[in-house]
Amino acid sequence: MIRHAFARAYLGLILIFLYAPIAVMAVMSLNASEFYALPFRFSTEWYERLFTNDEILAAAWRSVWIAVVVAIIATALGTMATLALWRHDFPGKRILQALLFPPIAVPWLITGTAMLIFFFGVGIGRGTPAVIIGHVALALPYVIVTVFARMQSFDRALEEAARSLGARPLTVARKVILPHAAPGIIAGALFAFAVSFDQFVVSYFLAEPGDSTLPVLIYSAIRKGFTPEINAVSTIIILISMAVMVLAARYAKFGGTR
């Protein structure tokens, strides 16, 4: 069918638009020339330099452990809140759910600068603790929405059954509710990791110069001028965040709901 061929061609063009610049960046990170000169000559020099660049390595390590800490805190707090929102009906519940939107809907530029003002005012200042506090707040709504979506498929009869067999509320939570929520919790944790690991705007205002995360370091490096090392580290970052998202998407599908 002509229409289908046309449709596939259009999708192909969109995918080229989305992936071509990333592919170019990845290829150029393996090009020997510092000025992206062609013809292409294969070289791993930029990756080798990368692994001896202490500044980049320190920022990379900081980005990773901050994202892990953020994922742990956001997943724990978010899962707890979701269970309460899902399990109980109470006055003000709709307001609590609406309060999840500001961290997503307010532009990060505004949230980030507001955090900077407030953290300075209360003495937290800039630095890694401020970055973690900010990232957790940004990640919480994603965790809650993801776990909540998973709990929609929970059969309440299971809980009734466990209870009528004499299980205490805590036992019900641990043995019946949490196992069901697990895929949603894992997906939520991966989303939270991605929100933190890829976050630039809020980190930019909250990170201390010389103590910054990887995206902030890359931003200042690009503004000083391009280097193929930045190319190499950017390629690694994009591969990591895409891998995390493919994993999250697999868990978020919650095993055969489609």
């Binding site: 990333i22 960046m25 890829d198 630039f200 995206p215 890359i218 931003y219 950017s234 895409m242």
Partner: peptide, 9 residues
């Protein structure tokens, strides 16, 4: 869902 800064770069 991948890094916005890197994509702009």
């Amino acid at each position: 869902w991948s890094n916005a800064l890197v994509r702009v770069f």
